[in-house]
């Protein structure tokens, strides 16, 4: 591995919604190099809000504050919305749970990928189409010609996720935020999608932020894991067996494991965790 250069640098990021005093994200600091970073937490832990805050995709009611929020060495928070829009199309990308909502429903898959090719390479229409077909083949879509003529609602979730990744292979983003990219997919295609994501970030030398509730999946795929609880990062791990924090340990123990069967699953002692969090 080459020395990881910093793609994203965040210090003390906080997000509040509306007039609420409660912070959905509270004092999060992280550095992302050209690596795979996992963000794990339960619903309401603020993990998705964090991802969207970094991409500045939160609604206007959200107040985002940070001591530093630098992307590629330049601050993000002060940029005008128009600049952000070009940035989001080119340099940073978001992969969502159900790709069929992020694709344009009235354009065929082929057209959309070709459009991405047109946007990022100075080429003609025909070339763009050929390039799109190339990319779709690269994400291991079998029947490329047929798939290109389909509309987003006609393809499966796994296929949609591949199409999204194909478009990103063209755009070559520096930062990829993947928010639960596999939880709407069938088990057998999850591995494929993750592998494709991995290829994508390796090839472009970009940083990947994988947001998920599935701590085991993240642990298997990412080099570093941030565990979030109630808007704060409680622990940073490289391996699951390093877990110290009772919340992380609770999460791991709560998952059933067929290789290690138990009569009763362990449940989280939320009161103890909250007490511990209040002290720190």
């Amino acid at each position: 591995m080459p020395a990881p250069e910093t793609v994203l640098s965040v210090r003390n990021l906080a997000v509040r919604f509306g007039r609420s005093k409660l912070r959905a994200v509270d004092g999060v600091s992280l550095d992302l190099g050209t690596e795979r970073l996992g963000i794990v937490g339960e619903s309401g832990s603020g993990k998705s809000t964090l991802g969207r805050a970094i991409m500045r995709l939160l609604p206007n009611a959200a107040h985002v504050e940070a001591a530093t929020l630098d992307f590629d060495g330049k601050p993000l928070l002060t940029r005008p919305e128009r600049e952000m829009r070009t940035l989001r199309g080119n340099r940073m990308a978001l992969i969502m749970q159900d790709p069929r909502y992020s694709l344009n429903p009235v354009l065929s898959v082929g057209k959309q990928v070709a459009e991405a090719a047109l946007l990022h390479g100075k080429i003609g229409k025909k070339e763009a189409y050929a390039k799109a077909a190339d990319m779709l083949a690269r994400v291991r879509i079998a029947d490329v010609e047929r798939v290109m003529s389909l509309y987003p609602h006609q393809i499966s979730g796994g296929m949609g996720q591949r199409v999204m990744i194909a478009m990103m292979l063209l755009a070559k983003p520096r930062l990829v935020v993947a928010d639960e990219p596999t939880s709407a997919l069938d088990v057998s295609v999850r591995g494929d999608v993750l592998n494709l994501l991995d290829e994508l970030v390796r090839e472009n030398n970009s940083g990947l932020m994988l947001i998920s509730h599935d701590i085991r999946m993240v642990a298997a795929f990412c080099q570093r894991i941030l565990v979030m609880y109630k808007g704060r990062v409680v622990e940073t791990l490289t391996r699951l067996d390093e877990a110290q924090h009772p919340y992380t340990r609770g999460l791991i123990a709560a998952m059933p494991d067929p290789r290690n069967p138990v009569q009763r699953l362990q449940t989280l002692d939320r009161r103890a965790i909250d007490a511990l969090e209040a002290r720190s």
Binding site: E42, S43, H213, D214, I215, G250, L251, A254, M255, P256, Q263, R264, L265, Q266, T267, L268
Partner: peptide, 14 residues
Amino acid sequence: LDVSVQAEVLNLLS
């Protein structure tokens, strides 16, 4: 459900 809540519900079912 979340993993920890899943554990509680599965225990209840057992």
